[in-house]
Design a protein around this nucleic acid. Structure first.
Lengths: 101, 101
DNA sequence: CACACATATTGAAGCTTGTCAATATGTTTT
DNA sequence: AAAACATATTGACAAGCTTCAATATGTGTG
């Protein structure tokens, strides 16, 4: 599972906005419909929809349509990938010294 | 260790830019001086300096000054915090159903 | 002390993102 | 079929980010 730098930025862009962090907090105790999220957030419906799209694109959140409602939840698969990417990217091999030393 | 939503976004902004992701890759095999990073990157010195500031502000990278050189490395403490925050934020408690169901 | 070198800061231009009002799409109800 | 409802899309504007050239700061060297 090899991601490009571009794809990695898409994942972490999900967490670059305070509103989206708050949405994660709201989703932590289970799936929620968009209307419930909207109630809890201080933004308009189109803005929420925009953030949900970014969250879904990142893979950290998944959406499920049921009739006229849209249910969102945190994706265990997506978040596991994100944790692994973060781990991978920040892992230090420490194989060598810098030339300038 | 309780971070605000704002502080969390600062952490993940480090990984929102392709160039910064590339910088992590360069730092993976140990501390590097700014001049070495600059060589490897396709950007000007002020741009690199700007990115290094964002990385240091995130806590994921630490800088160390030695004479006229600046050495940067991945911070094990910072990255551990980041992983924990990501884990925390994406942990699902699943305590209850959404009202709309 | 003047000069060369490494890095940081400033200021401006261009691009991207976040936000909202208005509107469109799709679904259920009457 | 029309009305009501939930969500998505569009278009416009504001705010923020990335980038660079120019300049400043700090450090070692002749």
């Amino acid at each position: 599972m090899k991601l490009t730098n571009k794809q990695i930025t898409v994942i972490f862009k999900a967490l670059c906005d305070e509103n989206r962090v708050q949405i994660f907090r709201l989703l932590q105790n289970g799936e929620k419909c968009a209307c419930k999220l909207l109630e809890a957030m201080q933004c308009t419906q189109p803005t929420l929809s925009h953030h949900m799209k970014i969250l879904c694109d990142s893979g950290l959140v998944v959406g499920r349509k049921e009739g006229k409602w849209m249910y969102y939840s945190i994706s265990p698969e997506g978040t596991e990938i994100a944790v692994n990417v973060l781990r991978e990217l920040t892992k230090v091999s420490d194989s060598g010294e810098c030339c300038c030393k």
